[in-house]
Every structure is written in C-alpha cells, then in structure tokens.
C-alpha cells in the first residue's frame, strides 16, 4: 500500500518509463511484423520493406479459408478443444490435488510432494515419446485423447494450487463444515474451489496458453491432419516437401489469426487476474 501512495505523488521516472517502453516495443515488434507480413502477397513478401503493410490481408485469409475446404478452421477448433477442455480438466485436477496436499495429512505426503517438485523440473517435451509408446499400447494414438490425456496432469499447476489452497482456504472453515456434517468432496467443490477461484484462473490461463502453444506432443501423437492443432497444421504448410513451395503467405495469415483468441482471452480474463493479485496481497 505504501508504494501505491508514494507513486501518486512522484513524477513518472523518465528512465523507468523508457525501459518499460523499450520492453513493450520488444514484445510488440513480432506482432507488428506478423500483421505487416500477413498483409502482403507472395511477390511482396520477400521484396518490400519488412514493416510496410500491404493490402492483401483479406485475400490471404480467403486463400487460407479455401485451403483444402477450410481445414484451417478445423485446426482452430481442434486447438480450442485441446486448450479449452485440456485446461479446464487440468485446472480441476490441479485444484483437487493441491487442496489435498495442502489440507490433509497422510503417510507419504512429503514423498508425493517431492516427486511432484521433480516433475516440475522435467520439461514436457522429453515425455512426449514415452507417452506415445504408452498410448500406443492401448491403441489411443492418433485420436483426440492422445493429446488431451497427457496434458491433464500438470505438476506445476498442482504445485501452484497447493500454495493457493494453503493461503486461501482457512482450516477453520473446513473444520466448521465438517462439524456441520458436510462430505469431503462437497467441502472441496462448494467451499474450497470458490475460495481458490482467483488462483485457479491463473492456473487455467497458464495451462491454456501452454496447450495452445504446444507443438511436440500433438506432432508426435497425430498422423491425421483432421485432428491437428493450429501449431502442427501451420508447420505442415511450411514443410510441403522439396517439390512444392512453402506457403508463406497462408502461414502468416494463419499465425495472425491464431493469436487473436489468446489476446481476447487475456483481455477478458484480465480483471479476474487483478482480483487475484489484490486478494493475494491482502491475505499474505
């Protein structure tokens, strides 16, 4: 609180504003580049000035939509499915596991937690091949499940949820509910989850973006391009084999379209995120 009152009196610092502006430019530059490049046709793409926009954005989007009867939009729907359903399930599993780890005592709890922490350190990419071999044994490769199932368990999400549950759900409330005769799952669903919700929004966003950007897992799991998410699909347009030119203009239009849902999601969920930060500051 004290920093907030101080900063209203101070003049904005030129140096820090400058650094922030540079940072913003650094982050926005690739997006500006994509917007400019997506508006060029193939003859302008590599010949005109990089950041000079052109007038072919709509043509490129129409071409992309017509590519193999609108396959691009199917990829968009697939990505929304993988990211949306995957992130919701993953958030629920994380909340449940984190809550249990924070609020219950059971033998081996610290062992479970340590294994979990180790899991945080293992990059998901190196698990893709073992996961493929396991899913191949039950015949689930090349299905929606092969991409959804491995992403439901997120060690980092569970770790975050444990911290949120410990901070946001007072033990007294749980005790009171138990005294009233509430069942454990009821306490979790009706009391703990609402209290943890701001934190869960963070986990949801985090997982959603992770799945949206995931390339390796679907790339290995899927052979049928009707099931591809946008990342694998666009990569395929760039690698048509030596005999066909890469479809740069389509890929750029697709890249531009594929970031729009993410931007919208962040803008729409931004206020919950702010609630979350404020709530965290009060409770900590």
């Amino acid at each position: 609180m004290s920093t907030a009152t101080m900063s209203t009196k101070e003049k904005p610092s030129v140096v820090s504003t400058g650094i922030l502006l540079l940072g913003a430019l650094y982050c926005l530059f690739p997006i500006i580049w994509v917007v400019a490049a997506a508006s060029k046709d193939s003859s302008q793409l590599f010949s005109t000035f990089t950041l000079a926009p052109s007038t072919h954005l709509w043509d490129n989007i129409v071409d992309l939509t017509q590519y193999r009867d609108g396959l691009f939009w199917r990829w968009m729907m697939n990505t929304a499915l993988y990211a949306g359903v995957g992130a919701i399930l993953s958030t629920w599993v994380s909340a449940l596991s984190g809550y249990v780890l924070a609020k219950f005592d059971f033998p081996g709890k610290s062992g479970v937690f340590k294994v979990l922490l180790m899991g945080v350190l293992v990059p998901g990419v190196i698990l893709a091949i073992p996961q493929y071999l396991m899913l191949a044994q039950v015949g689930l490769t090349n299905t929606y499940w092969s991409v959804l199932l491995p992403q439901i368990i997120s060690p980092y999400g569970i770790y975050l949820a444990r911290i949120y549950a410990a901070a946001a759900v007072p033990n007294d409330v749980i005790e009171a509910a138990r005294t009233e005769g509430a069942k454990e799952l009821y306490i979790f669903n009706r009391i703990a989850v609402p209290m943890m919700l701001p934190g869960l929004v963070t986990i949801f966003l985090f997982q959603f973006v992770a799945v949206w950007n995931n390339f390796m897992l679907p790339y290995i799991m899927l052979g049928n391009d009707q099931l591809f998410p946008i990342t694998v699909g666009l990569n395929g347009l760039l690698n048509q084999g030596a005999t066909a030119p890469a479809m740069y203009t389509l890929v750029l239009a697709g890249a531009l379209l594929s970031i729009i849902p993410l931007i919208l999601l962040f803008l729409l969920l931004q206020r919950y995120w702010r609630v979350d930060l404020a709530a965290g500051a009060v409770k900590a």
């Binding site: 071999l133 052979g223 049928n224 395929g236």
Partner: peptide
C-alpha cells in the same frame, strides 16, 4: 489420406509406430 509434413517427419512417425507396435 492423412496428409503429412513431408518425407522426413512421415518416416520418423512410421518408425516410431512400428516400434510401438500400433498406430
């Protein structure tokens, strides 16, 4: 037809599937 990303990825995927026994 399941469209692939060119010759190398298709072969890599096929070899993985052959080792895994299905797919």
């Amino acid at each position: 037809v399941n469209k692939q990303d060119g010759g190398d990825p298709a072969v890599t995927k096929l070899l993985t599937a052959i080792k895994a026994g299905s797919g």
